[in-house]
Nucleic acid binder design. Structure first.
Lengths: 241, 241
DNA sequence: GTCTATAACTGGATAGAC
DNA sequence: GTCTATCCAGTTATAGAC
């Protein structure tokens, strides 16, 4: 059960002279371990990854992993946290910036773009590290009983901000509709994050799951139309609920 | 790496008298093991589930699991296969039936409904067994390097059939657009399959991830609008590709 | 068919030397 | 900080009795 305890960050960097060569080296080792762990976790998940594999690939001993991260769970949490803070503060910034820029006439399309773009840009230009990270995220998203810890603290605020802004563009929307519309968007984004190559095979090479150029405009258009259709009360429509 | 070898189905049922009490009992044991495995695999994934846990919960010995399913992989494959055949032949039937019924004026909404309804009905009325199964499916979908074996054989034909029918309702659609639109739908469906309870917490209880009544109409409306927006060439739109 | 017993190995974790 | 050595619980899997 990933996501239980929190990471331990021990004595590394206790401000010795100014830039202790030692601490610098240590920080690089730490980063290397995280990179390797990210890779393996993205490919095989939490249980499918062993700290022995991580240690071997990072060219250190397993004991060192425990020294830095305390436990396997601590390592996972550290991996998860490292980019969670980055991506979510970026998304929050993008949404805030868009709201300010749009001023009075805020548009649904602009909101969706601001929400998606930071992630899509990292997929496109972030290299292996970010792709591995998003693969982990995709798996976490598909795992039952998730919503504790890191997820709640870093990801939820962005989503609530998104929904709040969408609500401004669709003032008559029922909150229930808004959440379900978001559910559709979230699923699409999660599948995109995985870059599992599934669409590549399905389309016989016509589409590539890491082709952000092709994916982005279609994802936005699809979501904008979907949100509008679900959230704008059409008189002829059912009122099931 | 799940999905490598195939399941072994040994001596069970070699047509003794007519209905050997023995074979009947055996079949029930077999089913019970599959049920338990389904449960655990849905919660913890392939590596997170041990055959000891399965054996204990099914109230048999681990040796019996190997007798029936040969290996852990064989057990997983058997679990995966059992309902894969059912759900996909149902979906194929539903699509065929809709096409025949609609005749000349086939509608996008009808196609999407036919594609989604078998799954949604099993989520709503299939009980724990189907929900566990879909949870496994959601995890498999989020795992890199999937598309071999069972997935290709049972799931892909349905998707190609879906896309073929959608194409009939949107004759001018670019195949690339069609596949990317499907990508959006597939992600939403996968997230729905997981019933992870994420939307429950996000919406503070307003929505429940297993509330098919609420989810179904919104999912259909969202997808129909999305497909149309992506696939119908609008003159004012970009032609990035 | 089902279970006992056990082989053969891998997992996470730690104490202690350097 | 980093590695050696080691513990031991837990893993899949199998041979063989009943």
């Amino acid at each position: 059960m990933p996501g239980a305890k929190s990471a331990a960050r021990p004595a590394a960097r206790q401000a010795k002279p100014l830039v202790s060569k030692r601490a610098e080296q240590s920080e690089r080792t730490r980063a290397r371990i995280l990179d390797v762990a990210e890779d393996l976790l993205g490919q095989h998940g939490f249980y499918g990854t062993t700290i022995r594999q991580v240690a071997q690939l990072a060219d250190v001993d397993t004991a060192l992993l425990h020294y830095y991260f305390d436990s396997k769970q601590g390592l996972f949490d550290a991996v998860f946290l490292r980019r969670a803070t980055i991506i979510n503060s970026e998304r929050l910034d993008a949404l805030n910036k868009y709201e300010k820029k749009a001023g009075g006439n805020i548009a649904l399309e602009g909101v969706i773009e601001a929400f998606l773009d930071p992630v899509l840009e990292w997929i496109a230009k972030g290299g292996k590290g970010w792709r591995n990270y998003f693969a982990i995220l995709a798996q976490v998203n598909a795992t039952p009983n998730w919503g504790t810890g890191v997820m709640v603290k870093y990801f939820d605020p962005v989503i609530h901000r998104l929904i709040g802004l969408v609500q401004k563009t669709l003032p008559d929307a029922d909150p229930v509709d808004l959440y379900w519309a978001y559910h559709n968007l979230s699923g699409a984004l999660t599948l995109t994050l995985g870059t599992t190559g599934r669409i590549d095979r399905l389309s016989n090479g016509l589409c590539r799951s890491d082709d952000v150029e092709a994916l982005r405009p279609r994802m936005i258009v699809y979501a904008v139309a979907g949100f509008r259709a679900v959230c704008v009360p059409q008189p002829k429509k059912r009122k099931t609920r």
